[in-house]
Design a protein around this nucleic acid. Structure first.
Lengths: 223, 223
DNA sequence: TAGCTAATGTACGAAACAGTTCGTTAGTAA
DNA sequence: TTACTAACGAACTGTTTCGTACATTAGCTA
């Protein structure tokens, strides 16, 4: 082939931009890993969908394993930073909890790829998170907010005692996560699309109702 | 090597047992797929851990894809048959729902491999279930039971109106499923093992409390 | 403007892996 | 006891896939 009309590399001049190349690899890798799982993802496929080559993946990330770890770290970081922004502590406890649950709900709905990545990481028993170091301790802010709201609610007698912040977070997350992560098998088995646009508002309210009902129910104390 | 001491094939005589060979492949395949995911699972590895060869996998199952589908079908069938056995409709609605939730809880706890298979199938967007045919319609009995209990509860005024059986099933499943499926990332991020033996009773009760609180809360009617 | 280095591309190697070919043997029925 | 078939095994094939060796160039600095 001659030098006429190279489609991707317009003009023979090769542009060098480390930051952009790295970011592009990361973005494409996120999609590919979410699409096919860790083992199913193809390094060649990631490279092909980038404006650079496979060589660069190994140059910047070292290998497939570390690339996946980086993908996870960046995905989690994105989430956490958004969680920081929300300010619900000025609301009364019941409204604050409901708002928090709805934000979690919206968040899961908006990031199905992230849900897939977390599912994949669980199949691999969180070995990449464990080997990361960066992750692990930046989850406390979300729990701290929950903790303060629960304290306030208990103080004014709205919430029954004995509910732990981490447990409540697990409860909220489980509903939101399952609805997205298991929508395919659930849809196939029960004939209902949990993520259908027409159902969204109902499930959003259902989550809030469930959490508030649990927190305000008569008593289910420590034991 | 001479004919002295073959470890696996004791005595030169080869035993032929189609049913056993097929069952053994299925059992090993279930473990392997659950361990490594669909793409991560190795046909050679499955064969190696069987008393037969890879040839037999293709002889009985046709290929990797169909083997996985068969694994899924058998896993689901096992579950469903156990669900049939339970008889809770003689209990009063509140006790019946709580018992049903606890059975789901125990069931998820006892079958982590099944949870992993379902997670994996969701990564693949339930394509194997869709292509199965066998599955799909045998989920209704569980929903039917729930439906009758909800009706009875509403009739005697114990439950508030407007709660759908499939939705309630999703609520119960989400809590039980998440606790097992996401235990690794949750543990790594929040420092709590959701499946620790010491916590099991608390989470079991928490689930029941949550569901009953939701069903008996004042009103969160149809809209 | 010469030279240096970070950044990039090409081409290839070696192993892993799904699936197949060909031949063999156990059990059964005539 | 022969003949037939379902059940089985060993070895092989073609391809995919991760990773690397080697060559090249953009852009900055002395």
């Amino acid at each position: 082939m001659t030098t006429t009309e190279e489609p991707s590399a317009r003009r023979g001049t090769r542009i060098r931009d480390a930051a952009r190349t790295k970011a592009e690899i990361l973005a494409v890798a996120t999609e590919e890993f979410a699409r096919a799982g860790y083992t199913g993802a193809r390094v060649d496929e990631i490279a092909a969908r980038t404006r650079t080559t496979k060589r660069m993946i190994y140059y910047y990330f070292g290998g497939k394993e570390q690339l996946f770890t980086d993908v996870l770290e960046h995905s989690y970081a994105e989430i956490r930073s958004k969680e920081q922004d929300l300010d619900v502590e000025h609301l009364d406890p019941v409204a604050a909890i409901r708002r928090l649950a709805e934000l979690t709900f919206d968040h899961h709905e908006a990031h199905p790829d992230f849900i897939r990545l977390v599912s994949i990481e669980n199949i691999h028993e969180a070995e990449h998170i464990a080997a990361s170091g960066t992750l692990g301790s930046l989850s406390s802010p979300a729990i701290d907010v929950l903790h303060r709201i629960l304290d306030a609610g208990r103080a004014q007698g709205a919430f029954s005692a004995g509910v732990d912040a981490v447990d409540l977070h697990a409860m909220i997350s489980s509903f939101c996560f399952f609805r997205v992560s298991n929508r395919h098998t659930f849809g196939a088995l029960f004939g209902r699309d949990l993520t259908a646009a027409t159902e969204r508002e109902r499930y959003r309210r259902m989550l809030g109702d469930m959490v508030i009902a649990y927190l305000t129910a008569p008593h289910h104390a420590d034991h």
